[in-house]
Each structure stands twice: as structure tokens, then as C-alpha cells.
């Protein structure tokens, strides 16, 4: 197990290194670093001072080393708009995004697995077909369009749910969260459903495909031959088997949920890091853009690492391979 984790850690470090190279050279080669890193409203003297201060007169590999060194110290530049360190801004917004993303994941698992299993157990039934139809729609509809529809129906036409903001938040372990107040929950519901929709469709498909495959296995028939109740067969024998691939894939999708929260946060004015990046792109707040990209890449790689480790814990077969290898 330790060997496995160490190997994965080393791999992740390598990928982060490569990605930092790509982002750094992307910024410095494709774009003009002076445009990206220095306030466009600065005058000539200021620009020259800044170039020196930022070390832009030095060769590019030295610049990269400085950049990495600063990144390790947590310094990814200052926002032009807010005048605060970019990293701090992102960290401030991150809890809101994580809350939204985790909520969306929860919705997709809690609804998606039962629905998908239902559709897998009774593929020819009307319910099974409707569930699949829903999942096809969930895949095809662009997320922002669904968000607009949700606002139109629930906020404009019915007027039952708020359409913007986070609502009332309370502190939990030093973080502000929405889900502990009624007002916060009401604000959270529409964005979370919106963000969940695509993953929900994915979970339904995975759970359905998994269920259809598992119910044909001999061990399910053997479980029936043991005289187990249908509920135990479905809830223990089938579900535990399909949970492994579903959780793995969904775990890998957490990153993509965070990325897609850009759309949801913009529609629902949810004050998370997704809205921050869109605002920053529109305001050309370049240090924040660079910091966001690096943070997201870092987050992605961490998630992939955690999922791999979790997967090996969940599936006894993978664990064994590792012991052998």
C-alpha cells in the first residue's frame, strides 16, 4: 500500500511540474507577460520598475525558477482589481465553490444510483425508459440553458426560490457555509441541481449499465439460490459491485464539477471561484487568472490522486494486485 501511494505521489508531482511549465510558458510565450502581469494603466516608468521588480529582464529559465520559488511561498501575484494577493482571493472564494460542487455530487449520487439501478433492473418498464430519456436529455442540454430554465420556472414564474447569491451563511470550522440555514439551503438548491444535472445523467447511465451487467452474473443467481430476499440482493450484492466504478468515475468528475461551476456560478451569481475567474477574465485581472489556473490544475491532480487511493481501498482486487506487485 505504501509503495502504491508513494508511486502515485511521485507521478502527481511530475504532472504538476509539467503543468506549471505549460502554464508558465503559456503565459510568457503566447501572451506578453508585461500585459499579463502588470497593470495596464501603469505609465512607462512604472512599467520599467515593475519589469525589474518582476525579474522580466532576466533569462526565461531563471524567471521560471523565481516563479516556482514564489509559488512555493504561496505568492502568485496581486490582483489589480482587489489589490490583494491572488491566492488569498481564490482561497476566500473556494469554500463557496466546494460547497456547491459537493452538494451537486451528493445530489447526483443520492438520486442517480437508485434511479440508474431501477432503470437497470427494469429496462423495459415505462419508469426505466423515462429515467433513460431523462438522462439523455441531461447529457444533451447545455448546463447554462438548464440554469436559465430553472431560474425562469422557479424564480420568475413560480417565485418560490431565490435566483442569485448564497443567502444567509453561518461559520463552520472557520468557513462560511450556506447549507445550515433555511435561507442558505433555498439559495443553494437551484445552483446545486443545475450543476448536478450532467453528473446525475452520468451516474444514472453508469449505474444502469453496471446493474444490467451485474444481475447477469452467476453470483447474483447464486445469491438467489441461497434464498436471500430481493432487497438484500439488490442493496448488498448488486449495489456494492456497481458502487466501485460509479464512485471512482464520479470522484474523477469532482474536478470537472468544479470546472463547470464556472457556468452555474455565473448564472446564479454564486460568489465562488468560478465567478471570480470569469469576472477576472472580463476585467483582465491577469494575476488572478494565472493563480486560478494553477490552483485548479493543482486541485485536479490532488483529486485524481485521492480517487486512485480510495479506489484501491474500495476494491479488494486492486489491493491484492498491489500486494503482489
Amino acid at each position: 500500500m505504501t509503495v502504491f501511494i508513494t508511486r502515485r505521489l511521485l507521478q502527481s508531482c511530475l504532472v504538476i511540474f509539467v503543468m506549471s511549465l505549460i502554464v508558465f510558458f503559456g503565459v510568457n510565450v503566447i501572451g506578453n507577460p508585461i500585459d499579463i502581469l502588470i497593470n495596464p494603466e501603469a505609465d512607462q516608468a512604472e512599467i520599467e520598475r515593475a519589469i525589474k521588480a518582476l525579474g522580466l529582464d532576466r533569462p526565461i529559465h531563471e524567471q521560471y525558477l523565481v516563479f516556482i520559488q514564489r509559488a512555493f511561498e504561496g505568492d502568485l501575484g496581486r490582483s489589480f482589481v482587489f489589490g490583494e494577493p491572488a491566492l488569498k482571493l481564490i482561497m476566500q472564494r473556494m469554500p463557496a465553490t466546494l460547497e456547491l460542487a459537493l452538494c451537486a455530487m451528493l445530489i447526483s449520487i443520492v438520486l442517480g444510483i437508485p434511479l440508474g439501478m431501477w432503470a437497470g433492473l427494469k429496462p423495459e418498464s415505462a419508469a426505466g425508459k423515462s429515467i433513460m430519456g431523462f438522462s439523455i436529455l441531461g447529457f444533451s442540454l447545455p448546463s447554462f440553458w438548464v440554469g436559465i430554465m430553472l431560474i425562469m420556472i422557479f424564480a420568475v414564474m413560480l417565485g418560490v426560490l431565490p435566483s442569485t447569491g448564497r443567502g444567509q451563511t453561518v461559520g463552520l470550522f472557520g468557513l462560511q457555509v450556506s447549507f445550515l440555514t433555511w435561507d442558505g439551503l433555498a439559495h443553494l438548491l437551484l445552483p446545486a441541481v443545475n450543476l448536478a444535472l450532467f453528473k446525475l445523467s452520468l451516474v444514472i447511465r453508469l449505474a444502469r449499465a453496471g446493474t444490467r451487467e451485474v444481475v447477469l452474473q452467476d453470483y447474483v443467481k447464486f445469491a438467489r439460490a441461497k434464498g436471500l430476499s430481493p432487497s438484500r440482493i439488490v442493496l448488498v450484492h448488486v449495489m456494492k459491485n456497481i458502487m466501485i466504478p460509479v464512485v471512482t468515475i464520479l470522484g474523477l468528475e469532482l474536478g470537472s464539477v468544479i470546472a463547470f461551476s464556472v457556468v452555474t456560478e455565473t448564472i446564479f451569481a454564486w460568489p465562488g471561484m468560478g465567478k471570480l475567474i470569469i469576472d477576472s477574465i472580463n476585467l483582465l485581472d491577469r494575476p488572478v487568472i494565472v493563480a486560478y489556473l494553477l490552483m485548479t490544475v493543482f486541485m485536479f491532480i490532488t483529486i485524481n490522486l485521492v480517487v486512485d487511493i480510495l479506489y484501491s481501498i474500495l476494491d479488494p482486487r486492486v489491493r491484492l494486485q498491489d500486494i503482489k506487485g
Binding site: 452467476d218 447464486f222 439460490a225 459491485n241 466501485i244 476494491d315
Partner: peptide
């Protein structure tokens, strides 16, 4: 009755036991 008064043994032992339990 199944698994109680009448039991069955299947052909392929690799397939009859649930791999995750």
C-alpha cells in the same frame, strides 16, 4: 425453500462468490 431445504452448487467457483463481499 431455496438455500434452506434445497441448495444449489454452481459450475464455476470463480463466478459464484460475490467478489466484493
Amino acid at each position: 425453500l431455496r438455500g434452506n431445504r434445497i441448495a444449489m452448487i454452481f459450475q464455476d467457483p470463480m463466478m459464484t462468490l460475490n467478489p466484493v463481499l
